[in-house]
Design a protein around this nucleic acid. Structure first.
Lengths: 213, 213
DNA sequence: GTCCGCCTATGACAACCGTCATAATAGCCC
DNA sequence: GGGCTATTATGACGGTTGTCATAGGCGGAC
């Protein structure tokens, strides 16, 4: 999980995202990024003349694009897509990581939002753009599943909100409980919106959507 | 909003929580805390021999107790309590702050979770305890509103997850949209659980729960 | 008075941070 | 080879961090 990207520049952006999501923005030093990326230190001021700000902003943007691509892949891999199934897949990505790799890291976009120095408006805007970039394919997928136009964006926001919050709680508790809980509780609501009809009590108590671990 | 608590010690804990939720843990310096609390610098090593760790941990614990007390106050102020009403009140607290004070600050517990150095297990445990302390009165309130025992804790986790995530997104976007959205979308689900019956489509499209701004 | 705790004041420490100045190297075109 | 650009190497700078050592003041106990 170390050097993957081709050029040193890509490697540094990737490493920055990984370190930020583990330690936060302020606690991540440029020398740490260089070491983690196994990149030459002199390349820093060459590729990122904007300094740490630029590196952080690009890392956040990269994370947003990565999240969007993940959503697309989840949809491709689903034989018969459903809102609860998509959400379960998004959640499962995190439960899998936490159960295999440990609870060391969270979401880089969340870290950047919480930890950006007051005055770093560019970083905050990058985080907002990342959320939008992530939310867009989710909302589009919901629409294609039959969710009315107005609801799709709202439900996408709800899904990402619940996921981000559950990641926080899971990390604090060192337990995936919060993640599996939100997937379970939100599934029926999401599926009901895609069918344009209300819950049945049976659905509410035994929700659909991918298996929980 | 500066010096409120009585002793210098309480003031420093309070100021630490305020600065942490604005700048993050690492970016908050002890000298900043002292200045913000208008406390004598020499008192730091006297009241907090455990150093920054101890101060941060106490600030997080304080935030957890504060959140729990807020929930209790919301319930007291509600003439006829409902799950969606409680959630709307919790959300409204944030929309109000963001619309009047600006989007400078987030949740201190979230900041501590994201930004705690790897090795500061005590801080992470403090964050987990804060989440538990906050979630407990919410779950109890849900139970008293008729939510089945098993569901109450799950829904409390869902509420806090969605709220925390929406706070993140709202801060990044500098817009309360995410907050009002989760309140709107989650309200009917919560109320349905308290009545033990499914949605009606009318509820789903025109959800109950406090007015949105 | 003297003593003894609590609290505060102050200055310094080593370590680290992001940034920069400067120079050396590598590769390619002509 | 000469020249040019892209990339890397290296060392230093000023600033800030958390922490500590040391000493001063202060209020009661006796």
């Amino acid at each position: 999980m170390a050097v993957s990207g081709r050029g040193p520049r890509e490697r540094m952006v990737f490493s920055a995202a990984q370190l930020i999501r583990r330690d936060g923005v302020t606690a991540t030093g440029m020398r740490d990024v260089v070491a983690h990326a196994q990149a030459p230190r002199g390349s820093l001021q060459h590729y990122f003349p904007g300094g740490k700000r630029q590196l952080v902003d690009e890392a956040v943007a990269w994370a947003g694009r990565y999240a969007a691509k993940r959503v697309a892949r989840f949809l491709d891999e689903m034989p018969e897509p459903s809102p609860s199934g998509l959400f379960a897949a998004m959640v499962r990505q995190w439960t899998d990581e936490y159960q295999t790799t440990g609870f060391a890291a969270g979401c880089p976009v969340a870290a950047a939002t919480v930890d950006c120095a007051h005055g770093a408006d560019a970083t905050r805007e990058a985080a907002a753009a990342a959320f939008a970039c992530w939310s867009q394919p989710v909302a589009q997928a919901l629409t294609e599943m039959g969710v009315p136009a107005g609801r799709a964006e709202s439900l996408a926001t709800l899904m990402i909100s619940a996921l981000e919050g559950a990641i926080l709680i899971a990390r604090a508790e060192q337990d995936v409980r919060a993640l599996t809980t939100v997937a379970q509780e939100l599934g029926p609501l999401l599926d009901a919106a895609s069918r344009g009809r209300p819950f049945t009590p049976a659905e509410a108590s035994a929700p659909a959507g991918g298996r929980e671990t």
